[in-house]
Write a protein that binds this DNA or RNA. Structure first.
Lengths: 340, 340
DNA sequence: CTGAAAGCGCTTACAG
DNA sequence: CTGAAAGCGCTTACAG
């Protein structure tokens, strides 16, 4: 290892080497390499060839220091274990993939813990160009980020603030569509498992549930609202009350609680979809081999991530017209709402 | 947003500001702030107080450029979606958490895609001090990383190379322990679902299965080996052959395939644990609300991640005695191996 | 189109 | 213990 590091130091090829070998100045070499105007085509070509040949890799720290840009973005996600948070895992992965296609690095920041000094520095000083913040992470020190000097884009909807640029999935109409689907499949009495109502997305999804009833001219029964916390266990725990209330359909505000409800159903001998049909939201349980497969409002994670990054880059570039975006999800039908 | 960025530029407080206000030189201020020797205690105290008061945040790019160290490590994980790879999600999260306690940043690198130019630079040039590589990501361009000039630690075991520093869970004896547990619970005919045998961990876990038979003086029947790929679907697909071979116990090399097998069992009316008992490996399905709960060899992800980071830091620090580490997992008993 | 020069904000021998 | 100076490796006005 020691010798490796020694090699590293001695083998390092810098812009000066490229410039010298190319017979041009450092500035010219820099312009050529960065595709900036003001270099004769043949010079540009020669510099690039020589750089390739030398295996030149610009030192990012130096670039960063000189230009003020790092080509690295940060991602703040909740620290609840990614393993038990399929939404967070899917989003993290989508951001990673979207970043790679734009030649950006991604720094991962777990939201729960108070960040240590260095990590705090990373957030607020230089190493990253901007920050993607999952709305799931909103709360505690995370909120302060929106007021810091760093560019931020929220993935999701902020529970209270309207002055932050965000990209979110369309929650209300998509939820209404899901509930309407239950009606169309013959459900007469549809219950709802809602997420924590201090979250804007949870509220919007509940609103969609209400809206579907209104549109269908059906009575809206507050008794059929069960309160979960988006965790699987909460779905298990609250589903019983809905079964007892005699529902024949359940709209769950996310897939995790829907899966929990299905587990509770299996335990009670409630058959799905025969006795009760279920729709979830997120599309995170598709590959989970649950039986029957879960009908769900599927989030296009890749599109959401790509859009969020593009908005962030626009803000970093100083564009003034950056607008929040809304992405429309798709209802994917599975066995959990099939006709009996 | 524009004004924000403007503020950022004007509000920026640098080491020079701290030094000037403190009435000392920049070098003295730097030494004081970084806890380096050669500063009078009262000066050190004053500098730190003033830095705090000014809200001084050292520019990481400048620090990095000057010192050659970034306090950021990279994590290379497979690009198979984190959502369907609980192992990857758990490890990613554990690394993030371990890094935060050491004041390190974590850069995320998805392994499948050929990395773009910039990301390639990040890997090999300056922005990170070292790289944690998940063995799951081994293959393609990832392997070249071990021969690059950057410090690397493998999480897992390399299929072929022995010259890489790694931290891995103990696979063989732990697997033997799992199979022995099945014997103790009364199983007479235990099948095995193995992972891809080009992977060292998959081989070691199979070896443990064989070893347990040897230790128990039981015949080892190659007919009872089913070949999966660590994915849930493969567990579903190959479990049938084991059921048909009349097994009353299954050791699955990971939890995902075990859950798949349980799903297949439910489909065929095979009762667990009454007809067949199952043990998995990883401990990633604990919170999944499967019924019955899955007995599993649980990996201590946090310890693995912490150890890996500490080894990496030791390599970066130039220590010569860095040894690979093996972490012993724990058998956690669930309902899937309960006595009928 | 081209190059000399200044500068990004730190750290680190080196000489007092 | 302290400070002046050089240097990390780039980018970017600026003047030709």
């Amino acid at each position: 290892m020691d010798s490796q590091r020694g090699q590293q130091a001695s083998e390092r090829v810098t812009l000066d080497d490229v410039a010298r070998l190319s017979g041009v100045s450092r500035s010219a070499a820099s312009r050529a390499l960065n595709n900036r105007p003001g270099v004769r085509p043949d010079v540009r070509e020669r510099v690039n060839r020589i750089a390739d040949h030398l295996g030149f890799r610009p030192n990012r720290a130096a670039q960063n220091l000189a230009s003020g840009l790092s080509s690295v973005i940060g991602l703040v996600i909740p620290s609840s274990d990614l393993r038990v948070d399929p939404y967070g895992a899917a989003m993290t992965h989508a951001v990673g993939r979207a970043a790679i296609t734009r030649d950006l690095g991604v720094m991962l920041h777990l939201a729960h813990d108070e960040p240590g000094a260095t990590v705090h520095h990373i957030l607020s000083d230089g190493l990253i160009d901007g920050l993607l913040i999952s709305s799931v992470a909103v709360g505690s020190w995370v909120d302060g980020l929106f007021d810091s000097s760093i560019a931020t884009v929220l993935i999701g909807t902020h529970p209270t603030r309207t002055d932050v640029v965000s990209v979110d999935v369309e929650n209300r109409d998509a939820s209404a569509m899901a509930v309407t689907h239950l009606f169309e499949q013959g459900c007469e009495r549809v219950g709802c498992i809602v997420g924590p109502l201090d979250r804007a997305d949870a509220r919007a999804r509940l609103e969609g549930y209400r809206l579907a009833h209104e549109q269908a001219g059906r009575p809206y029964d507050p008794q059929l609202i069960a309160h979960g916390n988006f965790g699987r266990l909460s779905g298990v725990n609250v589903a019983g009350s809905l079964f007892e209330a005699g529902v024949d359909g359940i709209y769950s505000s996310n897939d995790e609680m829907a899966v929990g409800a299905m587990w509770a159903a299996a335990h009670r001998g409630v058959r799905i979809p025969d006795d009760v049909k279920i729709v979830g939201f997120d599309g995170t349980s598709i590959d989970e081999f649950i039986e029957p497969s879960l009908t769900s409002v599927v989030q296009p994670f890749d599109r959401i991530a790509s859009t969020a990054i593009d908005l962030l880059l626009a803000i970093v570039a100083g564009r003034a017209d950056v607008q929040s975006a809304t992405i429309v999800p798709e209802l994917v039908k599975g066995g959990s709402t099939a006709l009996a």
